[in-house]
């Protein structure tokens, strides 16, 4: 298991859990449900937000919030 904040661009994985209740609720309703596949697509400079591809759209979250998101890495097929 890895924290989303620590993943490099291009890494693929599955969302496992989100440890902050407020954050969890917001991300859930935007489709980041447990088991959903994601891919890290961008990282802003200076430790800025992380952008992920989730159910065919791009979502950006702050690095601090990305630390609260657990991701199970997927092997490339």
């Amino acid at each position: 298991m890895q924290k989303l904040a620590n993943l490099a661009i291009g890494t693929k994985g599955e969302i496992r859990s989100i440890s902050d209740s407020d954050l969890e609720q917001k991300l859930l309703e935007m489709g980041c449900t447990p088991g959903e596949k994601i891919e890290v697509v961008r990282r802003a400079s200076f430790g800025g937000p992380v952008a992920i591809l989730v159910s065919s759209y791009v979502l950006s979250v702050r690095k601090e919030d990305a630390l609260k998101i657990d991701v199970q890495l997927l092997k490339d097929e």
Binding site: D20, D22, L23, K26, L27, M30, P49, A51, Y57, V58, L59, S60, V61, R62, D65
Partner: peptide
């Protein structure tokens, strides 16, 4: 309070 930034990139 904590601050959040969750934003779609259309």
């Amino acid at each position: 309070e904590s601050s959040n930034y969750i934003m779609e990139m259309p």
